Amino acid sequence: MHNKREAILPEGHHALYEAHRYSAAIRSGDLLFVSGQVGSRDDGTPEPVFEAQVRLAFTNLRGVLAAAGCTFDDVVDVTTFHTDPQSQFETVMTVRMAEIGAPPYPNWTAVGVTWLAGFDFEIKVIARIPANQSSGTL
């Protein structure tokens, strides 16, 4: 195991990574620190329908996790950001329950924010990379 920072980018990653100069995730040792994932279409623009935007954010998250050999079962910490938590909560919970699987659930912090660069939902996670996964960037 090494502790050097290693960038992880999923196949077919969206344009926001290049436009804003950041990595989808950083692997450090056996931990994966995933940047906030939004409901971005391939060109970097927001999915306009809120529920579809949340589902796409989870799809984008799964792609980043997979690029590091992880699944949502490896996630230990979740932070979500919401532009209107009160009106969005029920929709987010419906999508969340379909996505995160069985207990034990990861810890989760939800934060209300005023700006997400045109998006209404963002999710970032920390995952433990399974021991059988070799190092590598896609």
Rank of each mutant, 00 (worst) to 15 (best):
F119S: 04
P46K: 10
L138A: 08
L9R: 02
V54W: 13
E122Y: 11
P85T: 10
V34A: 02
P85I: 12
P48D: 05
V34T: 05
E99P: 03
D120T: 14
G39P: 05
A67M: 02
T83M: 15
D120S: 15
S40D: 11
D73R: 15
R55M: 03
D84I: 02
E11V: 04
T91E: 05
I26E: 14
R128T: 08
H14T: 00
A15D: 00
V76M: 07
E47H: 13
G36Y: 00
T71G: 08
A7D: 03
F72Y: 03
A57F: 07
T94D: 14
K4R: 14
L56C: 10
T91A: 05
V113N: 13
P46G: 07
V92W: 03
A131T: 07
T79P: 05
D74I: 06
D120H: 15
L32N: 01
W115M: 09
T114D: 15
S40L: 06
V64Y: 03
I129Y: 04
T45N: 05
P106W: 10
P48C: 04
P104Q: 10
R5K: 09
F33L: 09
T79Y: 09
P48L: 05
K4A: 13
A66N: 04
V113T: 15
E6R: 13
D77H: 11
I123H: 01
Q133N: 08
E122Q: 11
Y105W: 13
S135M: 07
S40C: 11
Y105H: 12
G29R: 07
N132A: 12
E11G: 01
K4I: 05
A131I: 05
G101Q: 08
D30N: 11
I8K: 01
Q88C: 06
T114Y: 02
P46H: 07
W115V: 08
E6L: 11
L65Y: 01
R5F: 03
D43N: 12
F89H: 13
A25C: 03
R96G: 06
L65P: 03
L56G: 06
W115I: 04
V64K: 03
A110K: 15
A98D: 07
S134D: 06
G29Q: 09
A19P: 00
D42K: 08
P85L: 14
F33S: 04
G63V: 00
H82D: 07
T114A: 15
A19W: 01
P48I: 03
I26T: 12
G101I: 03
A67P: 02
D43C: 05
A117Y: 15
D43V: 02
F121K: 13
T109M: 13
A24W: 00
G36I: 10
P85Y: 07
A68T: 00
M97L: 14
L61E: 08
R62Y: 05
F50A: 09
V111D: 13
N132K: 08
D43Y: 02
E47F: 10
L9E: 09
I26R: 01
L116K: 08
L56A: 11
D120F: 12
N60A: 04
V75S: 10
E51W: 00
P130C: 05
I126T: 13
V111H: 15
L9C: 07
A102Y: 14
Q133P: 04
R128H: 08
E11L: 02
A98L: 11
E18I: 01
D74T: 07
H13F: 08
M93T: 10
E122D: 10
E51D: 10
H2S: 10
R41Q: 10
K124M: 12
N132T: 11
I26Q: 07
L31I: 00
V78F: 10
F81L: 14
V125W: 12
